[in-house]
Design a protein around this nucleic acid. Structure first.
Length: 219
DNA sequence: GAGGAGATCGTCT
DNA sequence: GACGATCTCCTCT
């Protein structure tokens, strides 16, 4: 990483989830696990707006499960879904106001062998299309990302993204995103038509294929 | 290559 | 007891 790399602060997350979701594209998600550094560039996010957003876990109010979403900005909300998978979010907006951003996909950057191993993927030594297809399988999806990074609710729910001592951090290394696309969110039934999914246009590491329209600023 | 359905269990009602 | 911010495998075209 370049010397210009800097960790995101709480003020970055103390904004509308739609603004944060878009701004997170291109940032590096860094995980320290058992002495190893795992990192990926965020290429796809979804915004969840809080109590007015029926698709958000916080829609029905605060519970033990979703309390992190109602807390201060910049903290990890991890939940277990479909009996198999974890999903990783970061809380947004001030303490007491619900809102968050779901990390949906990232491009592997560092610790790729460790992440592939965690996913049960064997990477070939040589490159080519077959290797790229396997690299996509490491972290193109929220459940896949969590498995690759070793994220679990027990270990990471409520953890700070903005503490310099945290083993879960997000940094800006100066990478600039050329074009952002906005589509409807994936896998939900309520408020499903809202364009709140943000992805880097043309990036091969995004999940799914539902591309509805190109972003014109923040929706 | 695309689409459908099953797996599997925590959370909420 | 029902549902779900997913993934993978299997079948069909």
């Amino acid at each position: 990483m370049s010397p210009a790399t800097r960790q995101l602060r709480a003020t970055f997350f103390d904004r509308d989830p739609r603004v944060v979701a878009r701004a997170l594209l291109g940032k590096l998600l860094i995980r320290k696990l058992r002495g190893k550094v795992l990192a990926g560039r965020i290429v796809e996010t979804e915004a969840y707006l809080g109590e007015g957003d029926l698709a958000a876990h916080s829609a029905a109010g605060k519970t033990d499960r979703n309390s992190v979403l109602f807390g201060p900005p910049g903290y990890a909300y991890v939940y277990f879904i479909y009996g198999n998978y974890y999903c990783l979010n970061v809380s947004c907006l001030p303490d007491g106001v619900a809102g968050g951003v779901l990390f949906r996909a990232m491009e592997p950057v560092a610790g790729i062998d460790q992440m592939a191993e965690a996913r049960g993927i064997h990477l070939p030594a040589t490159g080519g299309a077959a290797k790229i297809a396997l690299l996509r399988k490491i972290s193109s999806g929220p459940g896949r990302m969590c498995e690759a990074l070793g994220v679990t609710r027990e270990r990471d729910n409520g953890k700070s993204f903005v503490s310099t001592r945290s083993d879960l951090r997000i940094v800006d290394d100066g990478y600039r995103v050329s074009r952002v696309m906005v589509t409807a969110r994936i896998g939900i039934t309520k408020s499903a038509d809202h364009p709140l999914r943000y992805l880097i246009e043309g990036n091969p590491f995004v999940s799914g294929t539902r591309l509805l329209r190109t972003a014109q600023g923040v929706a």
